[in-house]
Design a protein around this nucleic acid. Sequence first.
DNA 1: GCAAAAGTGTTTATGTTACACCCATGA
DNA 2: TCATGGGTGTAACATAAACACTTTTGC
Lengths: 228, 228
Amino acid sequence: MTDATIEPPRVAVQAAIFSVRAGADHDELMIPLVRRTREPFLDQWALPGGWLGAEEGLEAAAGRTLAETTGLAPSWLEQLYTFDNTDRSPATRVVSVVYWALLRSDLVEAQRAAAGSPENVEWFPVESLPDLAFDHRPIVDYAVWRLRNKAGYSRIAAALLPDEFTLAELRGVYETVLGKRLDPSNFRRLLEGSEALVPTEVFRTGPHRPARVFRYNADVDLADLGPL
Amino acid sequence: MTDATIEPPRVAVQAAIFSVRAGADHDELMIPLVRRTREPFLDQWALPGGWLGAEEGLEAAAGRTLAETTGLAPSWLEQLYTFDNTDRSPATRVVSVVYWALLRSDLVEAQRAAAGSPENVEWFPVESLPDLAFDHRPIVDYAVWRLRNKAGYSRIAAALLPDEFTLAELRGVYETVLGKRLDPSNFRRLLEGSEALVPTEVFRTGPHRPARVFRYNADVDLADLGPL
DNA sequence: GCAAAAGTGTTTATGTTACACCCATGA
DNA sequence: TCATGGGTGTAACATAAACACTTTTGC
C-alpha cells in the first residue's frame, strides 16, 4: 500500500454537457467537444475533462471543467457514472468520474457571441458526432440515454431554457430531447396541472395568437415530479 | 506516502450488499457490515470494501469485496455512486466508488450454516442499523432507495430468491423490498402476463392449496420490463 | 368442516392518447 | 379573409387498484 511497483490509479473527471440550438425545422441537441493536444488520440475529439485536483471535490472539478470549456455555470449538474479504462496505456490506470450537465441555450449563444469559442472547443449535434477518443462514444450515448430518460419523469429539460418561455418553446425542447413529436394540447394540460409552472401576464406575439409566457416555480425541484 | 505535501486521491471500492431473511411475521431486508480494525472509526461498523488494486477493474474489485465478506458471488451487481470524502482525515483524499449487490437468500443461509460468519462480519436489518463509520449511513440509505426504486420497474427482486419459487414467495420479497403489502391477485396477473416467469409442473404443499412453483425465464434480462 | 392460502373474475378509478374544434393575431 | 399556432374539450383506450368469490389442501 505504501510504495507500489505499479502506478496507483489516477482520478479524472469528465463532463458531457448539453444544450439545444435552433435548427432549420427542428432544434438540435448539442454537445461541446475538445480537440486533444497530446497523445494518445492526438487531434481527436474528446469529452472535456481533466485530473481531479488534490483539494477539490468531484462535483467542483466537474464545474471547473465546465467553466474552462464553456465559460458558464450549469443549470443542472449530475454524476453520470464512473468508468475505469483498464485498456488505456498499460502503465497508467485511470478512473474516470463522468458528470453530465445542462446549459441554458440563451447563455450559450450569448457567450459564443461575446467571447467567441475557446480554442480547440467545438459544439456538435449529438446526432452526428465525429470519432471520439478513448471510450467516449459509448459514454456520450449513455449520457444521452440518461437525459432522455430523466426528461420523461422530471422537469429538468427546463434547465435548457431561459427563465421565461412559452409552452411551445418548452415543448420544442422536450421534442428535441425525447426525439419525438408531442401533442400540444396534452403537453399543455400536463404542465398546467402541475405546480411547476407559473403563468405571467406577458405574452409573446407572432403571426398567430399571442402565447402566454411562463416561468418556473422556484419552489419546485426540477428533479421532482411529473410525467412526459 | 511521506514526501508529498498533498497526497493524490486514492480510490476505494465499497459494497452495499442486500439479502432477505425470514422474520417473525414478515421478512427483513439485511445488509452485512464489517467491524473496523483500525483508526479512524476503530471498532465501528462500516460497509465492506477496500482499496482498488493496481491491475483490477472497478467491478472486479467490488466482486472481490463481496467474496471476501460473504464467500458468495452476487446475483446482481451494479454501480451505485462515487463519493469523495473531503472531510475525512485531512491528509488522505479518498474517492469511494460504491456498488450495490443482491445475494440469493438460500445461498446466504447455506453459507452461514456451513462456514459460519467470517470474523468481524455481521448482518443487520436495514431497519435497525448501528452507527456507521464515515458517511456510510447516507450511502446505505441511498442504496436502499435505489433498490426500492429499481424493484418498481424491473424484476431484479427475483435475484434475492432461489431458481424456483412460488408466487407467494416472490410477492413476499417484493413486499419486503418495497415495504408495503401487495394484492396477491393483482401481483399474480402482472407477472403471469409478462414473459419473465415460466411455470413448472412442481407444486409446493402446505396447510393450504398447493402452490405452483415457477422459475425465471433466462432469456429475459432482470433489469428489463415490468411495473410493480 | 374449518382455516388458510391459491387462484379467477369483475368493477372502478385513473391516466394516456388521439383528435375535433374554437380563438386571436399578422399579413 | 386566410394561414398559423394558441388554447379548450372530449371520447377511446390502456393500466392500476380494490375486492368479491371459488378452489384445494392439512388438520
